[in-house]
Simulated scan of single mutants.
Amino acid sequence: MNLDQLETFLAVARTESFTKAAPQVHRTQSAVSRQIQELERSLGVPLFERLGKQVLLTNAGRMLLNDAPLLLQQTETLRGRLRDIGQGVSGELRIGATVTAANTFIPDVLAQFRLRYPAVNLNLLPGQSKLLARRLRRNELDVAVLGSQVEEADLTACLHIPDQIVMVASPDHPLTKKRTIKPAQLDGVDFILRESGSDSRTLVDHWINEQQVSINMLMDLW
């Protein structure tokens, strides 16, 4: 049984005639008759009684007539949903983002996306860039906002957003009295940094090593 056969069946049931049903389904009378025969053969029961040019529903035909419209409606609904998914306007979007991105600009971006595509279910997973990149490669995410350059050959960065890393200190810290701070002046200074492995920590560690500065780590901030 297929959808074309169901539509033909409904047309014949409404008109009680193969001839009258033919133009409604854009087929010849012989094609309509053949489709009904194939439908009856696939179901294993007669659906119509042939009385000359008139056809009447059997008990099985009346049962199918009761259910066929709902089947067609559900199928059309499913077609529409699948079409929307194919066009990117419904379904699920799995998004990965660094903790910094997830706590800053990502909420505004998702809010705008939600207004434009209300039928899309959004799932946000915060994490470190390396972990998110692995999830992308395993197809556990559809897109990710990373805090470092993509090194995997099979992943492509579509957009780069500039950002800055700054130092924050207490107002009474000696360094706050200076207009400019040279890297050497950070030797022995107490620091609280992001956890090891985070993108900002990786960038800071790289800069510290590059400048040959020795800081005093007080705490990792998770």
Score class of each variant (00 low, 15 high):
Lys130Pro: 00
Val12Asp: 02
Arg14Ser: 11
Glu49Lys: 04
Ala102Gly: 05
Ser30Pro: 14
Gln29Asn: 14
Lys53Phe: 07
Phe105Asn: 06
Ala13Phe: 04
Leu218Asp: 11
Asn59Arg: 10
Ala153Val: 12
Asn121Gln: 10
Ala31Ile: 06
Glu38Arg: 03
Asp4Phe: 10
Leu82Phe: 04
Val120Lys: 02
Glu76Leu: 08
Asp108Trp: 05
Gln112Tyr: 13
Pro162Gln: 13
Leu218Ser: 06
Ser214His: 12
Leu186Phe: 07
Leu10Pro: 03
Arg94Ala: 02
Asp220Phe: 15
Arg179Val: 02
Met167Lys: 09
Cys158Pro: 00
Arg137Ser: 12
Glu195Lys: 12
Leu43Asp: 13
Ser200Arg: 13
Asp154Trp: 05
His160Cys: 14
Ser200Trp: 12
Ala184Thr: 08
Leu57Trp: 04
Gln149His: 11
Pro174Ile: 12
Ile36Gly: 00
Val213Asp: 08
Leu78Ile: 07
Lys53Ile: 06
Leu82Ser: 01
Ala144Arg: 01
Ser90Ala: 13
Val213Glu: 05
Leu203Val: 09
Leu203Met: 08
Gln128Thr: 07
Gly61Arg: 00
Asn139Arg: 14
Pro171Lys: 04
Lys177Val: 10
Gln29Pro: 14
Val120Pro: 05
Leu132Ser: 08
Leu72Gln: 02
His206Thr: 05
Gly80Gln: 10
Leu39Ala: 03
Gln112Phe: 14
Asp142Pro: 03
Ile95Asp: 05
Leu125Ile: 13
Ile161Ser: 15
Glu40His: 02
Asn2Pro: 05
Val213Cys: 04
Leu6Met: 07
Ser200Gly: 11
Ile181Leu: 15
Leu159Thr: 09
Glu38Leu: 09
Glu38Met: 05
Ile208Asn: 06
Arg79Pro: 06
Asp199Leu: 01
Ala21Arg: 00
Gln54Leu: 08
Pro171Ser: 07
Gln37Thr: 11
Met219Glu: 13
Gly88Pro: 05
Gln54Arg: 13
Arg62Thr: 03
Ser170His: 14
Ala144Met: 02
Ser129Ile: 00
Leu43Val: 12
Leu70Lys: 10
Val143Phe: 01
Pro174Glu: 12
Ser214Gly: 07
Gln212Glu: 15
Ala97Gln: 06
Glu49Pro: 03
Arg62Asp: 02
Gln164Ile: 14
Ile85Ala: 01
Lys20Trp: 14
Arg194Tyr: 15
Leu65Trp: 03
Lys53Cys: 02
Gln35Asp: 07
Gly197Ala: 10
Asp142Met: 04
Lys178Ile: 08
Thr176Ser: 13
Leu175Phe: 08
Leu82Glu: 04
Leu6Gly: 07
Gly80Ala: 07
Ala31Pro: 10
Asn216Cys: 01
Arg116Pro: 15
Leu43Ala: 12
His26Phe: 12
Val55Trp: 00
Ala101Ser: 14
Val204Pro: 00
Lys53Tyr: 08
Arg194Met: 14
Val120Ser: 04
Arg14Ile: 05
Ala60Pro: 05
Arg179Glu: 03
